[in-house]
């Protein structure tokens, strides 16, 4: 199973590459909307890119809506990873 650090690195790499964001700007505190300039129209592409990169499904609307910062995204993916690995086991 991927370590949490690896996961964070992969999130940054995916967002930097697919959404053309500056990797330096992708700090844990950065807010997706204000700091990174992503808007609701980018949400679909962001979700698709992350789902593809991690082979996981974002299946909970509320938790996705609550994401404000890059760190929130890390935390959500860590939780998803744990629950979806548990499902497989």
């Amino acid at each position: 199973m991927m370590s949490n650090d690896e996961l964070r690195r992969r999130v940054v790499a995916t967002l930097a590459e697919e959404l053309e964001l500056d990797p330096e700007a992708l700090t844990p505190e950065a807010t997706l909307y204000d700091d990174l300039g992503l808007d609701s129209l980018d949400a679909v592409d962001m979700v698709v890119a992350l789902e593809k990169s991690f082979g996981m499904k974002f299946n909970d609307e509320e938790s996705l809506k609550a994401v404000r910062t890059v760190n929130d995204l890390f935390e959500l993916l860590i939780k998803l990873k744990e629950s979806q690995t548990a499902d497989e086991a």
């Binding site: 697919e18 053309e20 698709v48």
Partner: peptide
Amino acid sequence: FRPIYLKR
């Protein structure tokens, strides 16, 4: 447009 959108 972002390349990822264009690709989609």
